[in-house]
């Protein structure tokens, strides 16, 4: 897919064409508050030491997605209604689901 910049691509639950889950590690999921999806949250990917790695904005349905290296990750969401975080371990290629609730 054509994306030669650093702007965040549109976040969708369905992976864009051309992404090979046999090769790439994808961390993906939804931001929710009281079970309802939260769009427009700033979702930050932090590495095992808590260092910032990447940030996207959740879609209207609360979806987000990162491409990552193997390791332990924290996904932290910021929203005007509250913040929250969740941990996920990615040991190999594939889609690794992670859910984050904010309060």
């Amino acid at each position: 897919m054509a994306n030669d910049g650093c702007g965040a691509p549109e976040q969708t639950a369905v992976l864009p064409a051309g992404i090979d889950l046999g090769k790439e590690i994808v961390l993906g999921g939804k931001v929710t508050a009281d079970g309802a999806p939260v769009g427009g949250a700033y979702v930050r990917l932090l590495d095992a030491s808590g260092e910032f790695t990447a940030e996207v904005v959740s879609s209207q349905d609360g979806d987000f997605r990162f491409f990552a290296a193997p390791g332990q990750w924290t996904v932290r969401a910021l929203h005007r209604s509250g913040n929250g975080e969740a941990k996920v371990t990615a040991d190999g290629p594939g889609l690794h689901p992670v859910a984050v609730s904010v309060a």
Partner: peptide, 20 residues
């Protein structure tokens, strides 16, 4: 860039496809 891009592990930030 992020440490993984610096070391050569990744070619782009972690929220972008790595096809470069």
């Amino acid at each position: 860039r992020s440490p993984d891009e610096f070391s050569g592990k990744l070619l782009a930030p972690a929220h972008l496809p790595q096809e470069q």
